[in-house]
């Protein structure tokens, strides 16, 4: 049963002091339990959109807007952005500059302290969040002595402790090496499996193709596509027109399609590609 947890209705936004409208008349709905990947070239408005979903823009950081964003049935226009952090947690790109505490344990507890949780509950949640993010052996380490992947996991753990239903990751893997990036995606997939709604802005098309249910494409503030991953990623012409590339396996398969017509099911992940190309292998001999 699809339960809409975030509804965006004709939302437009421009920054304070600027005349450029960064988000133009966006309308879409995210259901609880979805894994939505947001893609788009630079300056498409992805970060602005993430911050709008949590009510930071415009209610805390300023700006001008029209339209409405409804989170868990409550319109942000009425609540002025407060109360969103009970439902949505957001993690940003540069984890290291978001840390304020001396140890991993205190960092996870920081948000809970700000919201007035009792000590018993905090201890429980720190344990829960650290285990979920694979940080149980690092309670007394300094956040600055962690690897990039561990730091991002710590950033996720800090908001996971509040047990939000939706987690937004704004380019969290951009500064990570491949190992760190895999750690984060594995964690995110596990959280999604446990029922969390995940919204992930990322440039890593291949990983999103593997994990995300739906893809939202933004270009210059406009919603260009919002559909199942498969439909979006195989639409090479649309994506290229908006400066987004397709998964490498899709590109290869589409290229081959020009020669070998009539094959169904263009792959977007490595696993699908294996089956697809295996199917083509025999055909090559026949062609001669």
């Amino acid at each position: 049963m699809a339960n809409p947890i975030i509804e965006v209705k004709n939302y437009s936004y421009k920054y304070d002091g600027s005349d450029v409208i960064v988000l133009k008349d966006l309308s879409f709905t995210i259901n609880e339990g979805d894994f939505v990947g947001i893609v788009g070239c630079n300056k498409a408005g992805k970060s602005t959109l993430c911050k709008s979903l949590v009510g930071i823009l415009p209610f805390v950081a300023g700006g001008s807007w029209s339209g409405e964003i409804i989170v868990d049935g409550k319109s942000l226009n009425e609540t002025r952005g407060s109360g969103v952090t009970d439902v949505i947690g957001i993690v940003f790109q540069d984890a290291e500059s978001q840390f304020t505490q001396q140890t991993v344990e205190d960092e996870i507890a920081f948000a809970m302290c700000n919201f007035g949780y009792s000590r018993e509950l905090m201890i429980e949640r720190v344990k829960f969040a650290a285990e979920a993010c694979g940080l149980s052996s690092m309670y007394d380490r300094s956040p600055y002595h962690l690897s990039g992947g561990q730091q991002q996991r710590l950033a996720v753990a800090s908001i996971l402790a509040l047990q939000p239903r939706v987690i937004i990751l704004d380019e969290s893997t951009s500064q990570l090496d491949p190992i760190g990036r895999d750690e984060v995606f594995r964690l995110v997939r596990e959280l999604h499996r446990q029922g969390k709604t995940i919204i992930m802005v990322d440039h890593n098309i291949e990983m999103l193709a593997e994990y995300a249910d739906k893809i939202l494409v933004l270009h210059e503030g406009e919603l260009v596509a919002y559909d199942e991953s498969h439909k979006v990623f195989t639409n090479k012409e649309l994506l290229n027109r908006h400066s987004v590339r397709v998964p490498q396996v899709t590109d290869a398969a589409l290229g081959l399609k020009e020669t070998y017509t009539g094959n169904s099911g263009t792959p977007i992940t490595l696993k699908e590609a294996e089956e697809y190309f295996a199917g083509l292998k025999g055909r090559g001999d026949q062609h001669e």
Partner: peptide
């Protein structure tokens, strides 16, 4: 377009 505004300099973020 009819837009509402929040002034960033006086916002909660200061």
């Amino acid at each position: 377009m009819n837009m509402n505004t929040v002034d960033s300099a006086k916002g909660r973020l200061k």
